[in-house]
Amino acid sequence: MALEHTIAYLLLGGNLGDRKKNLELAIQLLNEEAGTVSAVSSIYETAAWGVTEQPDFLNQAVQLETNLSPLELLEKILEIEQKLGRIRKEKWGERLIDIDLILFGDEIINIENRLQVPHPQMQNRKFVMKPLAEIAPNVNHPLLGKTILEISENISDLLEVNKL
């Protein structure tokens, strides 16, 4: 039985190789394998978060219309990252591509050590909220009861996030 279309929001990022090309390839593969990418934010450049001694990241938010379940989408995201050469060495380390599932409709999902949606740190990270607010300003955060725009305007993260 096919699931209804769900609108999911993903954050793409990377700081190795041809960063723009890696974002483009990730969007292309999401379109081919996970659903329809129906909105894409501008690209933003951000200093690394967590482990700071590494190259700057490019980040971009995408809106994806998908028939996949949340876990199927997570598996597809991991496959796409692997196809694009992602190697997981260290948490918050440098990477060719990173695709995070930020929101999945208005669902609240907590599958221990597998998947948490909404992304548990999204509201604390300007590099997530700024591109997301560009394509989904009026979407409500299912736990906080505020719009993405409201959250992004009141974020305390001091990391500089610059639109390219």
Rank of each mutant, 00 (worst) to 15 (best):
K20H: 10
K20A: 11
N22S: 12
N22W: 08
L23Q: 06
E24M: 08
L25P: 00
L25A: 15
A26H: 01
I27Y: 01
L29E: 10
L30M: 01
E32Q: 10
E32Y: 02
E33R: 15
A34S: 13
S38E: 13
S38L: 03
A39I: 10
V40Q: 14
S41L: 06
S41P: 14
S41K: 01
I43Y: 13
I43H: 09
Y44S: 00
Y44Q: 04
E45V: 13
E45K: 14
E45T: 14
E45M: 03
A47L: 11
A48P: 14
A48K: 03
A48H: 08
G50M: 05
G50I: 09
G50K: 10
E53H: 09
Q54D: 04
Q54S: 02
Q54H: 06
D56L: 02
F57K: 05
L58Q: 02
L58H: 06
L58G: 11
N59D: 07
Q60M: 10
Q60C: 15
V62D: 01
E65Y: 07
T66I: 09
T66M: 04
T66L: 06
N67S: 11
L68S: 04
L68W: 11
L68F: 06
S69I: 04
P70E: 04
L71W: 03
L71Y: 03
L73I: 03
L73K: 03
L74R: 06
K76V: 07
K76A: 12
L78F: 00
L78Q: 09
E79M: 12
E79P: 00
E79N: 09
I80D: 06
K83W: 12
K83L: 10
G85K: 15
G85N: 09
R86E: 11
I87D: 03
I87M: 09
I87T: 15
R88D: 07
E90L: 08
K91I: 04
K91T: 01
